[in-house]
Design a protein around this nucleic acid. Structure first.
Lengths: 189, 189
DNA sequence: TTATAATTAGTACCTGATACTAATATTTAG
DNA sequence: CTAAATATTAGTATCAGGTACTAATTATAA
């Protein structure tokens, strides 16, 4: 026995999987040092576990999140805008994913629903930039990851630079959210 | 002239920079084909522009977004929890960044503020998973990117599985947000 | 003790590079 | 037009972090 302090193959592979799931940026060499085995062993482990090489892992992380981040904070609207009548109404669709939900219950976290509503409300009003002034919202029933949220917004009143917008979100015709937004236009178009 | 349809060096470099900013996943070889120049020319361009190699670029994207996504949707709380009295009160801090704001006005988008408030509210109540039932919120004044949001939450009433939590967020002692949350505990701890 | 499983060693090869030298085009100035 | 300067290309050696494969060695269990 060359390297001391070894653990069994199965345990090593289990830990390996965990470790790489948590931090995919580790080379085989670093892993071999961590587990006190040769690089070849690590490579056999990866082969058996179907874990791709470092570069592939990094690329996967990059590609996956490249999309995600762009759709969460990069774009100005959350959800896909499928209909828009500026100053009047609009409809957007948001496909919920597991990433938006609590791992334990699979229920979509409220702020994602809120974000869709808020960004749709801002899209429909005819101003370059708006800021949510006041909003009164109600989550009517929980949303499960995977469900498709259909948001409908309607401008109900405009007073000066204040825009009153109602947004209703539903899953299969069942309303899950409603909100009243008062948006203040900062700069008119 | 070997390859036809060339553009000037400066234009090529300008386009190169744009292209790689938009899509960092392009190899030198693909770039050389796109611009109709040799690989060496592309490498000289990157050198002059200080653009790292493909793998480095991919890694940067991966690392940056790894953090970001984890802090936006991966973690259960948005903002840093600095004080917590389970069932009673809590304080969290969120350092706002440019990424959270509208590019044009530098004003932080409402849902980030909401997210901090909501997640803090959920943290303070003594239940494993909670879902926002109803919330009445008010944005009192706009927040600029870079400002530090201090959120204070207080549980004001508990009735069965319903928890009433008030959250106030301020920047330098100036209140910018207040919200009343009614959280419904799904499973008790 | 011997068969079997696990580990290690070693070689050839791959991609997408860096770093460097040298040659060849192309452009510009005089 | 021609020389000097600039831009581009070619080619070589080297690197990291691997794959794919063969063979040998070491542990473990029957």
């Amino acid at each position: 026995m060359k390297g001391m302090g070894r653990i069994s193959k199965s345990n090593r592979q289990k830990e390996l999987l965990e470790l790489l799931t948590e931090d995919p940026f580790v080379t085989d060499e670093e892993l071999s040092e961590k587990f006190n085995v040769s690089i070849q062993t690590i490579r056999l482990d990866r082969l058996e576990l179907g874990i791709p090489e470092l570069r592939e892992r990094v690329k996967l992380v990059a590609e996956k999140n490249y999309q995600k981040v762009r759709s969460i904070i990069g774009t100005e609207i959350i959800g896909e805008l499928i209909d828009l009548n500026l100053g009047t109404s609009g409809i957007s669709i948001l496909e919920t994913t597991e990433g938006m939900a609590f791992k334990k219950t699979n229920l979509v976290r409220g702020h994602h629903i809120f974000s869709q509503a808020e960004s749709l409300a801002m899209s429909v009003i005819d101003a370059e930039v708006a800021l949510t002034g006041v909003s009164n919202i109600k989550y009517l029933s929980p949303v499960h990851a995977g469900e498709k949220l259909v948001a409908k917004a309607e401008v109900v009143r405009v007073r000066g630079n204040k825009h009153f917008v109602h947004v209703k979100i539903s899953v299969n015709q069942n309303q899950v959210f409603r909100g009243k937004f008062i948006l203040v236009a900062i700069k008119a178009r």
